[in-house]
């Protein structure tokens, strides 16, 4: 797990990583995740922060068996494209689910989990993952 740690780079994104804060265009209403400063639909710069519900559907997925450095301990793990109910499509790991249980269109909900650790003495990164809903 030997990548250099860039604490400030991660810290800047805590809000979106921990609790899915996106942006909504005040002019055309489009919701973006990750947050944007300029709307890619209408070009407006009038954006407001919006809390996404964390509910969505799996539209595609793969199983990562040869992960990038820092993720070796978690292999094999599912990585999915998830369409959030507000519209944005995001790439995220699935958790609390076996590969054979994953299906197209499967409903999922957001949880905040450990994403990776930087050595024994580095920071621990937390962020969003998705799992089948508990209820």
């Amino acid at each position: 797990m030997g990548k250099p740690m860039q604490v400030s780079r991660f810290w800047r994104h805590f809000k979106e990583k921990y609790r899915l804060i996106g942006t909504k265009c005040k002019k055309c209403g489009k919701i973006h995740f990750p947050p944007r400063q300029v709307c890619n639909e209408c070009g407006s710069r009038e954006m407001e922060e919006v809390q996404l519900s964390g509910r969505g559907k799996v539209i595609s997925w793969t199983i990562v068996r040869n992960p990038p450095s820092g993720f070796e301990y978690y292999k094999p793990y599912p990585l999915a494209l998830i369409e959030l109910e507000e519209g944005p499509i995001i790439l995220a790991q699935l958790t609390d689910v076996e590969p054979e249980e994953i299906t197209f269109g499967m409903e999922v909900e957001m949880v905040t989990r450990k994403i990776r650790e930087f050595n024994e003495d580095g920071i621990i990164l937390y962020g969003y993952k998705f799992r089948p809903p508990v209820k």
Partner: peptide, 13 residues
């Protein structure tokens, strides 16, 4: 706990 869980993530949920 799952691999990606610790006392803190349990606390969050």
């Amino acid at each position: 706990n799952n691999l990606d869980e610790d006392a803190l993530t349990i606390g969050i949920e």
